[in-house]
Amino acid sequence: MMEFGFRLSPSSTIDLDRADLSLYRKIERLEPDMKTCMACGSCSATCTAGQYSGMSMRKVILGLQRGTDVSGMLSCCMLCGKCTMVCPRGINTRHLILSICRTYEKK
């Protein structure tokens, strides 16, 4: 077939009507504190893994809220717990990470 060099670009739009939030709902029940995240970014700023791997606790929570896959990021976490120490909302982010991983495993 002739290759014209055209292709369809997928839309980057987040469509909240279609987003699959089932994982978010499950984790929201397990870890209700997650709902209080105010996206300050302290967790990501302090994360040792973040600088090298793109792990960001803030983005993990955001991804869950938007129904996107966050498993790639989680696999870079070393569970050091620094993010938990700095979170101004007192979210136990380390515990949250473990809960998210467990929920993924069950899927």
Binding site: S12, T13, I14, D15, L16, D17, A39, L62, R66
Partner: peptide
């Protein structure tokens, strides 16, 4: 725009 994700967002 969902400026935290850096992506456009729509919802009904």
């Amino acid at each position: 725009e969902d400026t935290l994700s850096g992506k456009p967002l729509k919802i009904q």
